[in-house]
Amino acid sequence: MRKEGRNDDNEAEAGERKLTVDDISPAFPLIYEIVKKVDGMHIQTCNKIWVEVKRENLLDFCKFLKEHGFDHLSCVLGVDMKEYLEVVYHVWSYIDRRMISIKVKLPYDDPVVDSVTSIWKSADWHERETYDMFGIVFRNHPNLKRILLPDDFEGHPLRKDFKVEERGWY
């Protein structure tokens, strides 16, 4: 039995004021380079960093992360924000024990983004699912087709404008 006390002092601190880049730079010097490459940044806790990237820069940024030890793509998901679509990539570094969540905004009428399967193979099924549910097209994906829904399904059900057919009461 170890001594009590959580080791997330930073989390308590975050409640009082917003964390900045300088707060986490001693433990994570790479942050200065990341700041230069991204459009926006939100530091949730010391090891949860949300960044926003333009879709043209996504592949370069992902390659950069992979080179610096972010080797586990935990999850890829889409979000329909009504004005635009959003793809979120959660990338975890097994060495640094840090998560960077990359957000990419896509316009409704042209939801195309580069596939990251060449960097993390685990993106394969995640991207297929996102395509299935949101109709987001991943360029250069090896096998982009529906995964959970039948091939002849019409529409993309997790978009907010998808009408769910309601069953009547009998």
Binding site: M1, R2, E4, R6, N7, N47, Y94, R97, M99
Partner: peptide, 12 residues
């Protein structure tokens, strides 16, 4: 171990 949650950090 990596991203401890709940009280897992208290056990050996």
């Amino acid at each position: 171990k990596e991203d401890p949650y709940s009280v897992y950090h208290m056990f050996d």
